[in-house]
């Protein structure tokens, strides 16, 4: 009996202690929720609500001016027959070429800037400047750099021709970067590249600094140098960071908007639809820049399709980069 009592008192104590922990953790939870509340409210209003409304809108014909009626999946069937949207999606797909270039360049620069050279912080700052520049401002400046005949880039080419190669062409016309259907999208993509490099570089710098020094030292003792050090130690350990950056830049590339809109001079994909990308096309459809009607329902349907495409690419990325980090060695 006595044994039982002592047992039960032990149980009681334990449960009391548990209760105490429970109340503490509960209190902490309430506090945590309170802290999260403002952000959640903002998220609910500006993310979840528009998101859900956008999905609903995709099944309606709606011009925001009061005309709205249910059309079932018409918007989606129309989207799959819409040649221009196909072209736009294809160009968004092409834009993905920026991703590997951006990542390789960002890793290379991060490796260079990870050393303890003098003045390295200045270079870090220089590479980061484009990131904090407004994208629209940058696009306007780049438009001027790319201008035909009188643009900075073509003036440079002309100067190079005249002074270095000693060839003078009286009426020199350099490449028309933003006006040649074969060059325009690439020229715009370079601005995305230029602007993104600093951003990813900083993330890679952080990733590099989190690599345990012992592993690198051990590899050096084993004779790893330069490329082999990068190949067998640094890159595998950097894999989680690479995955993160690749996914982020894939998403960014698929929904690229500002630089294309500014440099192509509107959503029309000038010249000859060669710069038509998914986001500008959706924007043009919604706000009348393409087709002249305000087709918010159709634009919402197109947005959903774009979201699905992004989702697929993200899954592919996750599949490709799921190995790495310290697990690589286990």
């Amino acid at each position: 009996m006595a044994r039982q009592t002592s047992l039960s008192s032990g149980q009681l104590e334990r449960s009391r202690a548990q209760q105490k922990i429970w109340t503490i953790s509960r209190k902490r939870q309430v506090v945590a929720w309170l802290f999260m509340l403002p952000a959640l409210i903002i998220l609910a209003i500006f993310t979840f609500y528009p998101l859900i409304y956008g999905v609903i809108l995709a099944f309606f014909e709606n011009n925001l001016l009061g005309e709205s009626h249910f059309v079932g999946i018409d918007n989606f069937t129309r989207a799959f027959q819409d040649k221009d949207f196909g072209v736009a999606l294809f160009h968004s797909g092409l834009y993905l070429l920026v991703v590997p270039m951006l990542q390789v360049a960002a890793i290379a620069i991060a490796l260079l800037l990870n050393s303890k050279l003098r003045g390295v912080t200045i270079f870090r700052a220089i590479f980061y400047v484009p990131v904090i520049t407004s994208l629209v401002v940058a696009a306007v400046v780049w438009k001027w750099i790319y201008a035909p005949d009188y643009g900075l880039l073509n003036s440079g080419i002309r100067w190079f021709n005249e002074t270095v190669t000693q060839t003078t062409i009286r009426r020199f016309h350099g490449p028309d970067w933003l006006n040649d259907p074969g060059l325009a999208l690439g020229s715009i993509a370079f601005v995305t590249f230029w602007k993104g490099i600093g951003y990813y570089m900083v993330i890679y710098l952080a990733g590099l600094q989190s690599i345990p020094k012992e592993l690198e030292e051990a590899a050096r003792l084993d004779g790893a140098r330069g490329l082999s050090l990068a190949r067998y130690v640094i890159v595998p350990l950097l894999m989680p960071t690479i995955a993160l950056c690749t996914i982020m830049s894939t998403i960014a590339a698929l929904r690229v908007f500002d630089e294309v809109l500014v440099m192509a001079g509107g959503p029309g994909g000038n010249p000859n639809k060669s710069t038509l990308v998914a986001s500008t096309y959706i924007y043009g459809r919604a706000f009348g820049g393409i087709g002249g009607r305000f087709e918010f329902g159709y634009a919402a349907a197109l947005s959903l399709i774009l979201a699905a495409v992004i989702w697929v690419f993200t899954l592919i990325n996750l599949k490709l980069f799921n190995k790495g980090g310290l697990e690589y060695y286990s």
């Binding site: 528009p50 407004s134 629209v136 924007y283 919604a286």
Partner: peptide, 29 residues
């Protein structure tokens, strides 16, 4: 709701900001 969605449709794509830069082009298209 529709008002918010306008922002949503554009915000998946980031709405254009510098109107003064865009203005002549857009208005003259």
């Amino acid at each position: 709701g529709a008002a918010v969605t306008t922002a949503a449709v554009a915000s998946t794509t980031v709405a254009p900001t510098a109107t003064s830069a865009l203005a002549p082009t857009v208005a003259t298209a």
